[in-house]
């Protein structure tokens, strides 16, 4: 589980097809979470599965090079911070905690030319926080469980 399994076909399939496709599908599930099945939690689980697949095929050290532990920790904390930001932002604008109805979106609708309600915008912020938190925490779980150096 810690070592790299030497197979050209396995490495090519994992690196060139499966991991990028799974990440793109996870982002799709995240961005379409309001109008179709999906959301932050599901997208986070799918993207975490992609990174765990990279670690399984390429080995822990080699596969985890692009996403080391310190970056994962920062991303998990950033996810919690984004969630808190989405909760406190309506508080600053005169509403209650997590009351998305007061978030101003008129400037965004004029800029993008689409009618988006403020509640959808608030849920979108929350979904990004959940996505970052779930994805990085699941990868951190795998890294700690299969860490070769720690023997506890």
């Amino acid at each position: 589980m810690h070592d790299r399994y030497d197979s050209v076909i396995l490495h090519f399939a994992a690196r060139a097809f499966m991991v990028p496709l799974i990440v793109v599908f996870g982002i799709y599930v995240l961005l379409h979470g309001e109008s179709s099945p999906g959301g932050g939690f599901q997208a986070g689980a799918i993207v975490a599965a992609a990174f765990v697949l990279a670690r399984l095929t390429l080995g822990n050290r080699h596969g985890g090079r692009s996403l080391p532990m310190w970056l994962l920790t920062v991303l998990a904390c950033a996810g919690l911070g984004i969630y808190m930001f989405g909760g406190i932002l309506p508080l600053l604008l005169g509403g209650n905690f997590l009351d998305y109805g007061v978030i101003p979106v008129e400037w965004y609708n004029q800029f993008a030319g689409e009618p988006k309600t403020s509640r959808a915008a608030g849920i979108f912020i929350i979904e990004w926080g959940v996505f970052l938190g779930v994805a990085s925490v699941l990868v951190i779980l795998y890294d700690h469980l299969t860490d070769a150096e720690s023997d506890d």
């Binding site: 589980m1 599930v29 099945p37 999906g38 939690f41 599901q42 689980a45 799918i46 975490a48 599965a49 765990v52 399984l56 699941l138 779980l141 795998y142 469980l145 299969t146």
Partner: peptide, 18 residues
């Protein structure tokens, strides 16, 4: 979607790692 990603994907890998 959640069951397929978590139950069939991550949980199996975590249990094998354990």
């Amino acid at each position: 979607l959640t069951e397929a990603a978590l139950g069939a994907g991550i949980t199996g890998v975590l249990l094998v790692g354990a």
